[in-house]
Design a protein around this nucleic acid. Structure first.
Lengths: 340, 340
DNA sequence: TGGCTTAGTGTATCCGCTTACTTAATCCAT
DNA sequence: ATGGATTAAGTAAGCGGATACACTAAGCCA
């Protein structure tokens, strides 16, 4: 069995509590004793048992990650690895580990979260998405468990620390950009409508369309899953219209990849016949051909700030919730051209 | 404070131990009592405290993941999310959670692993890479801590359960394929030479070159990091030769992306002027233009089997170590053509 | 010199759960 | 009726550490 605090105490000829205090660097212990105990720890290769510590302490030095769908689906979209990069950067700085529970159905995921929370496996949670009437978010609020959200909470946004882009504004500006290029028939390819991002961006799109005095047509609005297949479906629907759009605002790069490949099969040229503007600017968006014109939403920073915010919630629970807005920026590449 | 086993015991009017036995579904408890206790648990919304359980139990229901570099670097390569997808599939089936520690330098990562192991934060570890003389692997062996490796351990491979492709054979066959296309000047773009994959594939490449009676030239062998930048560097070196290769065997798709973009800048046409064959077949390899001809190494399955193997190690420690070989398959796309 | 503060350690209990050991109750064969 | 199995549940001792409280010895002042 591994070395315990008692072994160290025995060797250093002190009480276990003294050893515990040395670990916690308690000022009431004399330098001499500290040195003696530290030597014993080194000699024995002692490492505190984290479970014991967590139990006594009620803290785990771990933060939980909740993804919108099962990890194995979510990881198909480079968005998630990238947010996690951001999260793990902060986590590492403060010696927190990351904890992911997994599950396929919504119920399983929910159960996983309950286990994380009730089982005190983590000190707090970062929700990597925001959804309308999300069960998990409600639960965390009820339990008053520390958590932050990437995206805008559908309700109670004021009382929940969250990190978001101004998606409304971004979508509006991007639509205006397409309009400024001369496009009047602009399609919107969104993700699931119960995701708040989709809603915000759709509203921004609508605003721009209406501001410009263009007709807002329902048949130009399509919602699919955040995957390549989603993009493929979307294109088929939109191109089947009598008057198909001349430009598309696509909510996610991976969907754009799907759009692109389908258009390619159909012999529709981009941006010649159809312009494409999408969101996220994932690392590989410059690789497709043509390379994607995409809105860089600073995914890394979203994760970074979310983790930072969470640690604040954990350490200073009384602090009020805050909203962090991460800037976005259009990266112009090859998928947009003026309407001719 | 949250509901404990005692609260449940009191409500159900039994001893705490009985409740514990109900949780463990111990057959020595009568159905009647079980029902009674379960009702009390439901009523109170009881969930066992995992730390307490781990402490008493010496098991955590979590498996640790070790990446070759800091998570924030590793996640730039889609290989890792994809392996994790595989791992999380198994983990989920058996209700294990995933635990990632983070760290930037080699030392920090090592310390993170020590904390995972000594602190009993996880029941076992999956190493997502295999490196020559790896300190972490040595440590895990010394400690007799359950772990599995993705890739072939550099030494003691017989005593360590590991999941691998036959990289030697793969590289050999792929080189032969390029040779069969008429190429005689074939470059090899590898990753860090202390990664066992690099070594194995390089040896396979060499074997094929020698078998074919072609000259094995050191200047055709380049080693860079597993990132896009690595690919860019590599190309520059190889194209600077008086007699540059007509085909490249690239060890990783992301590097290939870098190669491709640099070639594009330099105005070298692929596959017209230079053929490219790479490994991994990550999800986005079909998106580049031209789309990558790549060896599908079944990344998902590598992860899946690694996790499965680990759980076996954990549950049946006496079982001998095994080697699982995951098949590979060439996916022909647009980056290879015959030499003319 | 006695009483009081204070720094430095030790003692004991608890965190929430598991489990070896015991006890109590029931049952069957003699 | 009695004793030995057998079953069902309780008791209590950890798992490894944290910490409130207790204690001791030294230092200080009147």
């Amino acid at each position: 069995m591994s070395v315990t605090i008692k072994d160290v105490a025995k060797l250093a000829d002190v009480a276990p509590s003294t050893v515990s205090r040395v670990i916690a660097n308690n000022p009431r212990i004399s330098e001499k004793t500290k040195r003696k105990v530290k030597e014993a720890m080194d000699y024995l290769g002692y490492h505190p048992n984290f479970n014991a510590r967590s139990l006594a302490n009620r803290s785990t030095q771990a933060i939980g990650l909740v993804m919108p769908s099962s990890a194995d689906k979510a990881f198909q979209n480079p968005f998630f690895p990238e947010v996690i990069r951001g999260i793990s950067t902060i986590a590492h700085e403060q010696e927190y580990a990351l904890y992911m529970s997994t599950g396929n159905t919504e119920d399983e995921i929910f159960e996983g979260v309950v286990r994380m929370v009730q089982g005190r496996r983590v000190d707090g949670i970062v929700m990597l998405y925001s959804r309308v009437d999300d069960r998990i978010m409600c639960y965390l609020q009820e339990q008053k468990f520390p958590f932050t959200v990437i995206g805008k909470p559908f309700k109670n946004a004021e009382s929940i620390t969250h990190i978001d882009n101004d998606n409304f504004k971004a979508a509006q500006e991007m639509t205006e950009y397409l309009i400024s290029l001369g496009h009047e028939r602009i399609g919107f390819v969104g993700g699931n409508l119960n995701l708040v991002v989709t809603i915000d961006r759709l509203l921004g799109y609508e605003k721009a369309i209406r501001n410009a005095g263009l007709p807002y047509k329902d048949e130009y609005i399509v919602h699919e899953e955040f995957l390549k297949e989603g993009g493929q479906e979307a294109v088929k629907e939109l191109l089947a219209l009598k008057e198909p759009p001349s430009a598309l605002l696509v909510i996610d790069d991976v969907m754009s990849f799907g759009v692109l490949s389908t258009l390619n099969e159909l012999g529709v040229s981009v941006p010649g016949d159809l312009s494409l503007l999408s969101f996220n600017n994932v690392m590989l968006s410059e690789l497709s051909s043509p390379s994607l014109t995409s809105v860089d939403i600073n995914i890394f920073q979203l994760g970074y700030e979310a983790a930072k915010g969470l640690l604040e919630c954990i350490h200073f629970p009384e602090k009020p919730a805050k909203r962090v807005v991460v800037p976005f920026k259009l990266v112009e590449r090859q998928t947009c051209s003026s309407f001719k």
